[in-house]
Write a protein that binds this DNA or RNA. Structure first.
Lengths: 223, 223
DNA sequence: TTATAATATGATAATTATATCATAATTCAG
DNA sequence: CTGAATTATGATATAATTATCATATTATAA
């Protein structure tokens, strides 16, 4: 269950949103002003902040700055003023999305889930079949069991993950990992690495399902 | 320079957007229909797709599905119909943002940059003094020169980077890297790793400036 | 200052990573 | 089907990593 901090001072909106978001399975706490919001963020832990731009005791931009400087909490601005200045300022301060009032409840849910998805996966944890790569920890695991990848195997896996769906030529892979292509490393080196990586990540290394061979072109993993 | 694929069939919008986005430093290509869009995505490489919902040869949802199933390209929908159904459908198909026409050009730019940031296309690079860690590539470098960190050294460095400013106790560090604290690894193992990491990343390993010893508590790096 | 705990270092053996070789299996064109 | 190109595999030598030992150094409290 995701915990949302709603920074808003309009009683009607607060009541409506708490009711609606609770029904959708979120846990919601309300802060009515800047100080209360910043205190709550420091004291409790949340997964996302819904932040009204216009608060009784000042604008929400300051709150966003404060939150983003001390945490990496995702922030979605809510605002009646759909003026361009606010939008641009909001994003510049590190906001993750921006919804203009009046918004449709279902769109709010979609955007909340979308921001949670984007902030949760970008550069952190990636799934590749049953293989999970955590770039924050620098580890890879398969069905929860740690795969003790070597430095080069890990980097090779990252190249595939960051180019999912695209065929990677041998040259590109060599360039990605050894910096230079062909000249300094043996032609077979890459082939051997592919084999060893497959032995660690594939269920059946002889019939690879993750790293597919594209004969004549290179290798690819599906998105 | 980021490469954008604009899937749109309205000549006026195409011309305006290409001119505006080019001025902002993006490289833009246009596909007028579904087939052209999917072909272009397969043939060339882009960093982001701007996708109109209503195309002459069908709706953009199919294009989004096709793109998302074979690549991990970020997609932003553009649409005149601000109806709720489309918004929700778009996000369900994996879209990363959604902008209703008529949109303000500056907001479009903000949202494009925001999506690029969130999806990680912008890279995930952290600086620690003159040491740079690229978690997308899985590499670390010092003044541009590659540091050939071993798997464990790299993971140890990541722990410090992700806890900048905080003192990390020996127990926490052991838990982070060996999963278990004290029981299975020798008490001195961590000390030896700190030393070896310092030898690779510090200018003067005897007088460490990056990983500081906090006697009696553990180690820390400054934020 | 001295004793003691905490941290650092140097050396070690076992293991694993790395690059390359030789050879085998496979795809696909002709 | 046959042969050449491509990819896969097994084996090997060298180098690096890893965990631990013994020992040295340092900081701080008494």
């Amino acid at each position: 269950m995701y915990r949302i901090l709603l920074v808003e001072d309009d009683k009607e909106i607060i009541d409506n949103l708490i009711e609606f978001l609770s029904k959708e399975g979120f846990s919601v706490k309300n802060a009515k002003g800047q100080t209360a919001a910043i205190e709550l963020v420091e004291k409790e832990s949340f997964d996302l902040v819904l932040l009204d731009v216009s608060l009784a005791d000042g604008n929400g931009f300051a709150v966003c700055s404060a939150i983003k400087s001390s945490t990496c909490l995702p922030v979605i601005f809510l605002t009646a003023s759909g003026d361009e200045f606010s939008t641009v300022t909001g994003f510049d301060l590190g906001a993750d999305d921006y919804i203009a009032k009046p918004f449709r409840p279902r769109e709010l849910i979609s955007r909340i889930k979308n921001v949670l998805r984007l902030t949760g996966t970008a550069g952190n944890i990636t799934q590749l079949g049953d293989v999970t790569v955590d770039t924050v920890k620098g580890t890879a695991s398969k069905n929860g069991k740690d795969l003790f990848l070597s430095a080069l195997e890990y980097r090779l896996l990252l190249v595939f993950i960051n180019n999912r769906g695209a065929v990677m030529t041998r040259t590109k892979l060599l360039e990605s990992i050894w910096d230079i292509a062909g000249d300094f490393v043996n032609d077979n080196t890459l082939t051997v690495y592919i084999k060893r990586l497959r032995e660690k990540i594939e269920d059946d290394p002889q019939n690879p399902e993750i790293i597919k061979t594209v004969r004549g072109l290179g290798y690819k993993v599906d998105a």
